[in-house]
Amino acid sequence: MTAEKDFSSSSGTQHPKRLVFAPGDISGPADAEQETNTIKSAATHLVDDIARSGTSTPSSVMQQEIVSHPARAHQFVINPPLTIAQLHPTNPLHQFHKWFKDPRLPRSSAPETCTLATASLPSGRISARMLYFKELDERGWVIYSNWGSKEGKGQQIFGSGFASSADGNVPGGIHDSAALNEGNKWAALTFFWSTVERQVRIEGLIEPLSREESELYWRTRERGSQIGAWASWQSKVMWSASPESFPPPDELKDPDFDDGRNELEQRVKDAEARFADVENIPLPPFWGGIRVVPESVEFWQGRASRLHDRFRKIVALIEYKSTSESSV
């Protein structure tokens, strides 16, 4: 009999060993010290002077120029073939760490950028969002975010009952909601590094971090970022207009036109005043971390003629099984 680990907590008080902590927040080697000029760009575009039609249907001349252009499709030629012998034999986390630390990846390219995809239950509607992963440990990929909106994915991850607001009018907190064990446990992460023609796809289970773990990273953030987190009620509509009432172009170009930004800036001022005498700004109830514990990890490397190399590692997710199993 297989028993799932309680979704509401992390792996006990013993934190897993970190392989990467807060990439992007800690300065890496200067790009000038890297041989970035030797890196071929993976983005090849059509020439800028191709004639464009005035309609949505391209002209026959344009079609001919596109078809005859030798660089119409990018060719992947940077790396030698990827073989099993080049991959870590057992641990995809260590393999990811090796690729992430590739000296050909300039820190300025923000290789920690990834896409997090989740789905709502029971509808199954999927949403995806670009963000930064901040930690890689021996259990998975850790992401911190404001979860207080649909775009923040709070309800998808923590359950439909989760709600919280920066001004306190809507009470609640992710760490309390995580204990209810609702929401969708499954998520997917995708990393794409065009400069080295590589991609990593992760599918696995979401594990909310404890409040203690979230606070540990929260304390490393700059004060301005902490203020911004409190001030930003993520995805709250601050200005809207119907097609009938949409302002004319001249009004939109007016430097004094308010598209809702003034309200956000006022919220920042209010947060600054609120915490003016507070040395350590507290963790917002809607802000914290999750860990994506992998079930599968796919390593993809581009190859000429679209004959790409893909290797997928299925992870046992031992942490999610009871130590003693028996047949029922």
Score class of each variant (00 low, 15 high):
residue 288 G to A: 07
residue 156 Q to I: 03
residue 114 C to D: 06
residue 148 G to Q: 07
residue 236 K to G: 02
residue 2 T to P: 14
residue 123 S to H: 06
residue 316 A to Y: 07
residue 181 N to V: 13
residue 122 P to H: 04
residue 225 S to K: 15
residue 48 D to V: 11
residue 137 D to S: 06
residue 61 V to S: 08
residue 89 P to Q: 05
residue 252 L to C: 07
residue 36 T to I: 15
residue 294 P to V: 08
residue 54 G to T: 09
residue 196 V to T: 14
residue 208 P to S: 00
residue 41 S to V: 13
residue 180 L to K: 13
residue 183 G to W: 00
residue 13 T to N: 15
residue 110 A to R: 12
residue 116 L to Q: 05
residue 233 W to F: 07
residue 101 K to C: 13
residue 26 I to R: 11
residue 257 F to A: 05
residue 286 F to A: 04
residue 81 P to A: 08
residue 242 S to M: 12
residue 102 D to K: 09
residue 35 E to Y: 12
residue 307 L to H: 03
residue 292 V to I: 12
residue 23 P to C: 08
residue 122 P to L: 06
residue 165 S to T: 00
residue 149 S to T: 00
residue 268 V to M: 12
residue 10 S to F: 10
residue 125 R to H: 11
residue 207 E to P: 02
residue 271 A to S: 12
residue 107 R to K: 10
residue 180 L to E: 10
residue 37 N to P: 11
residue 15 H to D: 14
residue 113 T to L: 09
residue 71 A to R: 11
residue 151 E to K: 11
residue 5 K to M: 10
residue 29 P to M: 10
residue 70 P to I: 01
residue 184 N to V: 06
residue 83 T to W: 02
residue 86 Q to P: 01
residue 292 V to P: 01
residue 38 T to K: 15
residue 161 G to P: 01
residue 279 E to P: 01
residue 245 S to H: 09
residue 238 M to F: 03
residue 45 H to L: 15
residue 291 R to V: 08
residue 262 N to E: 13
residue 265 E to N: 14
residue 306 R to L: 09
residue 60 S to A: 04
residue 327 S to R: 07
residue 206 I to F: 05
residue 143 I to M: 05
residue 11 S to E: 09
residue 105 L to K: 12
residue 13 T to Y: 14
residue 113 T to R: 08
residue 115 T to A: 09
residue 276 A to N: 06
residue 164 S to R: 01
residue 265 E to V: 09
residue 234 Q to F: 02
residue 279 E to M: 08
residue 12 G to L: 03
residue 231 A to R: 00
residue 304 A to W: 03
residue 128 A to V: 03
residue 316 A to E: 11
residue 82 L to Q: 06
residue 111 P to T: 01
residue 228 G to F: 05
residue 21 F to C: 10
residue 84 I to V: 15
residue 114 C to W: 03
residue 213 E to T: 08
residue 276 A to S: 12
residue 184 N to A: 06
residue 154 G to E: 04
residue 216 L to I: 13
residue 327 S to M: 09
residue 323 T to E: 14
residue 295 E to N: 11
residue 260 G to Y: 04
residue 136 L to R: 02
residue 166 A to D: 00
residue 254 D to P: 03
residue 153 K to V: 01
residue 192 F to E: 07
residue 22 A to V: 05
residue 207 E to N: 11
residue 192 F to D: 07
residue 9 S to R: 15
residue 201 R to G: 03
residue 328 V to M: 12
residue 126 I to L: 15
residue 99 W to M: 13
residue 318 I to F: 04
residue 137 D to H: 04
residue 122 P to Y: 04
residue 274 R to H: 14
residue 145 S to I: 03
residue 231 A to K: 01
residue 113 T to N: 07
residue 7 F to I: 12
residue 105 L to W: 12
residue 220 T to A: 11
residue 152 G to Q: 00
residue 300 W to I: 06
residue 123 S to T: 09
residue 229 A to S: 06
residue 56 S to C: 05
residue 299 F to W: 07
residue 98 K to D: 15
